[in-house]
């Protein structure tokens, strides 16, 4: 699906960014990229999305269709919810849009402008927009970091149900360990400045998982020690 070979992208005299990252992703996998701030995890996603061209190394997508969701909703303020969802589409296909709006729980809000949406609703609109082109891969850059805890859990469940329906491959950048444990099959730990791929953690528990699962809790301790928070605090 995706193979990344020794990709580096650094700024400020190699102080920030990431270097020498290699990994492969199989179809239908949900990959988490965890790391403390400044380790280049968002930059990695931007490089993979084609938004940042100044990288070295090589990566190849097997299929081109990539959807992306950002930390902020990034909706076009002059478009209504349904127009925003249809933003990436060529041609008209209202039925797909309506279906997606129903899926993300926004049926009945089609005609609102982004200024009238709550943070969670805006992020759900953004999710629907990322899904509308039926991408094989979705890149998610801390997508739920700006919404409240309840909305966050709802949206995570929604993401899983979409994954179940369409077997979408997902790359999720996050700093929320619980989120990664709940969603991901594999977790890449980035560490250092510039960030390097330090460890890969495989979580084989079937999804959906119980958030309070004891096994997950022990994995959390493991990840915490890997992230080596003492150094950065």
């Amino acid at each position: 699906m995706l193979s990344v070979e020794q990709v580096s992208r650094t700024f400020n005299k190699k102080q920030v960014g990431f270097s020498d990252v290699s990994f492969t992703v199989k179809e239908g996998e949900i990959i988490g990229i965890l790391g403390t701030s400044g380790c280049g995890k968002s930059t990695l996603l931007r490089v993979l999305a084609g938004l940042d061209k100044d990288y070295t190394g090589k990566f190849t997508w097997e299929k081109e269709q990539v959807g992306m969701m950002f930390q902020e909703p990034r909706l076009m303020p002059w478009l209504t919810v349904e127009q925003n969802v249809g933003f990436g589409m060529k041609g008209d296909s209202n039925s797909t849009i309506q279906e997606l709006l129903k899926l993300v729980g926004l049926a009945g809000f089609e005609k609102l402008y982004p200024k009238d949406l709550s943070g969670g609703m805006a992020q759900r609109t953004a999710l629907a927009r990322a899904l509308v082109t039926e991408p094989k891969v979705i890149l998610l850059d801390e997508p739920f970091s700006a919404v409240d805890a309840f909305t966050k859990m709802q949206l995570q469940k929604l993401l899983l149900s979409i994954w179940k329906q369409q077997n979408t491959t997902m790359l999720l950048v996050t700093h929320d360990i619980d989120e990664a444990l709940f969603l991901c099959d594999k977790i890449f730990i980035l560490r250092g400045q510039p960030g390097e791929l330090y460890e890969t953690i495989i979580i084989s528990e079937p999804k959906p998982r119980d958030r309070g699962d004891f096994k997950l809790t022990t994995r959390k301790a493991e990840i915490l020690s890997l992230l080596d928070l003492k150094q950065t605090v």
Binding site: G67, F70, R74, M76, F87, G88
Partner: peptide
Amino acid sequence: RKLIEVGKIY
């Protein structure tokens, strides 16, 4: 710039 990036993604 963030809005323009959305267009680039598509």
